[in-house]
Amino acid sequence: MAAARAELSIVVVRSGGFTGISRRWAIERPDPDDDWVALVEACPWGQVAADRESRDRFTWRIEARVARRHHRASVPDRELTGPWRELVDRVQRDGSSDV
């Protein structure tokens, strides 16, 4: 299988919280490792449970483009577990940040 050139870009925006001050992290890789792609694909895009009880918790807007596939989700802080958490941690650690 001749793989199309896999580009990866991920943007994470954390909004809300008591302070209401948003933060943004981003990463781009022209030739991402397979584990990046696997991590993006492991996230349950389109299947995020709502959190109707919490107030002042963060909301995480996560947008990923990998191998020409676009993904987008708004993930309540309470649901930021498993692969979501791993993805956000990794973007925060390896990517760039601006407030």
Binding site: G17, F18, E53, S54, R55, D56, R57, D77
Partner: peptide, 21 residues
């Protein structure tokens, strides 16, 4: 943790990062 929130039953408070908060 840079936040304080209400989870529907109780309040939860973070200590801040010491940099901004």
């Amino acid at each position: 943790y840079d936040n304080a929130f209400w989870n529907g039953e109780r309040m939860v408070f973070g200590d801040g990062d010491g940099q901004v908060f």
